[in-house]
Structure formats: C-alpha cells, structure tokens
Design a protein around this nucleic acid. Structure first.
Lengths: 198, 198
DNA sequence: ATATTTGCCTAACGATCGTTAGTTATGTTG
DNA sequence: CAACATAACTAACGATCGTTAGGCAAATAT
C-alpha cells in the first residue's frame, strides 16, 4: 500500500540529510519521522523498510554514474578529453545530489548482503570504465605508463573526496572544481620540469 | 579499577577490527565481548565506555600523524623531498595500523562533541602541515601555482584511500605504494608534454 | 451520496542497546 | 596462611531499536 511518489521523495531527501549528518546506523526511523513531523509508523505507508531508503539512495546514484561513464566512453574522444568529461560528469552528479552522494560513498556498507554484492558489481563496472580511459591514454602515448588499477582508484578517491568540503554556493562552482581536479590529476603538483627534456 | 594494559590492547585491537568491518555504530559492546570470548560486562573492567575505545583509537593515530609531519617539516629539505617523505610516513602509519586507520578515517564522526572538536583541530593542524609543504614548493618555483587548500585535501584523499584496497602482504609493499602515490601526485597522469616547452 | 483510497495516528511487539551492581573463582604477594 | 588484586561472571536497569496491527478523518472517485 505504498503511496504518492512525491511524499516518498520528501522522505528520501530527509533521510539522506540525516544519514549524511549522523550515519545510517545512528539514524533511527524515529529520527526520520521526527524531522518530517510525523510518527515513525507512518513512514511505513511509504517505505518498505529502513534499508529500503538506503538501497534506493545508493542505486539511484549508481545509475547516474553508470549513464555518465557510458556516455563518455561511447563517444570518440582522446583520453584527456574523455577523462576531463568523466570528471566533469562525476563532479556534477556529486554536487547536485550532495546528501545522497555522501550516503552513496560512506554508507553503502550497511546494505544487505545481497544488495551490497550488486552495488559492488556496479561500482566495479564504473571503475572499469575509468580504467579504460586510462588505458586509452597509455595506448595513445599521452598518459604515463602507470598501474591502471592504482591510477583509477586514486583518481576516484580524489574526486569523491570533494563531498567532504564542497558547499553549495561556495567559492568554487562545480565546473571550477572539476577543472581544478582534472588539472591536478593530469599534470600533478610539479611545475613542468626542464630535466625531462632529453 | 582498570587493569592490565596488555588485555586492554587486545580489546582495542579486536574492537578496531570490528569497527572496521561493520562500523562503530553497528558494532555492539556484546559483539566485541563475543569476539574476545567474554561477557559484555567484563569489558568494563578494562574500558570506561564504548566511546572510550573510539577515542583512544582516533587520538593514538592522530598523535602518530602529528609526530610524522613535525619530523618532516622540522628538517630542511626541498618541497619535493618533504612531500615524498610526508607521504612515505603517512602510508607507513596507515599500513602498519590498518584497522585503526580505517576507524580513524571513517568513524571519528561518532566521537562525542567535545572529542570531535579536539580531533578536528588536530586534523586541521596536520592538513596545515601539508599545505606548508605545498607553499614551500610554490615559493621554490618547483610546484605549480595552485590552490593550497584544494591541493592538500586532494593529496590527503588519495593517500587515505589506500586503506580501502591495501592488503598486508599484497602485490605492493608500503614503500612501493608510497612511491607510486608520490609520482602520481607530483607528475600526474600526462606524459611530459612537448607543447609546454616554450 | 456512497465507496474507496490516502496518509496519518495510537499502541504495542520482541529484540537489542550501553551500562551498573554485586559476586566469585584464580592467582599473587605479604 | 592471610590479605589482596585481577579478570572474569550473572543479573538486571531503563532506553531505544525496527516493525506490525488496526483504526480514523479527510480527500477522491464513482
């Protein structure tokens, strides 16, 4: 007897805010209800379970990432363009769904075994998409020969970390954040080094 | 009436393992006791509270990081050497205290307000140490002019992420991990670019 | 006007939570 | 041997957990 999707979106949004601030395990169903000014039991007209909220949150975001990486890898570009575009999309998804993104990044471990397995598969597929971009760059000769697995993880960790400090309406727009990240990841900290010229 | 430090170390180590695997909030005092084959109440001969375990774990690691960054910044080196050394120490601390490190990185949010405040201060001081190294590089002219705050956070995020995949006795030694990370952070993905030569 | 659906309510369930009080074997030390 | 310290125990506390059953007023559909 689940009801209007509109009310469900409110419940999801409120829950994501609370899960972000206090963690999934430390947020009770009663906390969520209180934030919505209703009773805990009333939530169950809209959701199946507490884990239902987590599951929907994690998988909705996973789908967005999935579409984004497909879009990038289906179009023909060189590796640098692809990576810049992937980072741009990734940052956009994170910043436009900040609360959900934090839950996606931090709280997926609390999914049931079954859902967790599926989630990890989707995450692996996404990582594989990033690795393909890096491989493209190596094949082109435009990227350094580097451990792909290591590089993909390092790229993703620095991109994901923005949820820890990004503030809506802050100093940097999502686009600027994405550009800064891309520059950092592509060229590193060091100023161009004249000793590499021979 | 707190007892032998030896037994307390066992309790800490066991708790850290469980906190790493299931999270602080989802690990009950009874879970910890069960893993040690004792009753939950027996733990209280050794610890003050559940949060006590978290507090000790977070602050012991914070101290290690504090000493490391002091050691790096007190010795005179150029920025690249300093950064490489800081990353090497950081990776060593993480890999030699893997369970505690995961708790330090993921679970500090569950500290009491008072402890959390102190923890954040210590973390900020550490980040400031990293920013100083970056500033040194900019002053030297060996690092690109870059947003220091942004750079420090990005460096730390990629270094901290290793706890998600590092396995003791795995393919890469801590030293190799540190070197790979330093190379990545210093020179980026892109092969040295001839269009930058004028 | 009547029937149905919606969105909430109260009340309660059994389980589990962190923690305390008080006790008891098992050494260890004088 | 007597006194003490150690490291565990049993039992229980009040609080809170996710969830279910059943009801009720207001809105909507027929």
């Amino acid at each position: 007897m689940l009801q209007s999707t509109e009310r469900k979106r409110e419940i999801l949004a409120t829950s994501q805010q609370l899960f972000k601030d206090h963690g999934y395990a430390s947020t009770s169903v009663r906390d969520i209800a209180k934030a919505l000014n209703i009773e805990a039991a009333s939530l169950y007209s809209h959701i199946e379970s507490k884990e239902d909220i987590l599951k929907i949150t994690c998988f909705e975001l996973a789908e967005k990432f999935e579409s984004a990486i497909k879009e990038v890898n289906d179009i023909y570009f060189n590796a640098e363009e692809k990576l810049r575009m992937a980072i741009k999309f990734h940052v956009e998804i994170l910043t436009h769904n900040l609360n959900a993104a934090v839950v996606f990044i931090r709280e997926w471990r609390h999914l049931s075994d079954e859902s967790k397995k599926e989630f990890i598969e989707k995450r692996n597929a996404y990582e594989e998409g990033i690795r393909e971009i890096i491989q493209t760059g190596i094949d082109e000769g435009t990227f350094n020969e580097i451990d792909k697995r290591f590089a993909a993880l390092t790229v993703l960790s620095s991109v994901n970390w923005i949820v820890e400090w990004y503030k809506e309406g802050g100093r940097l727009s999502p686009e600027e954040v994405a550009n800064n990240l891309s520059d950092f990841i592509l060229t590193g900290l060091k100023a161009s080094n004249p000793t590499q010229l021979f």
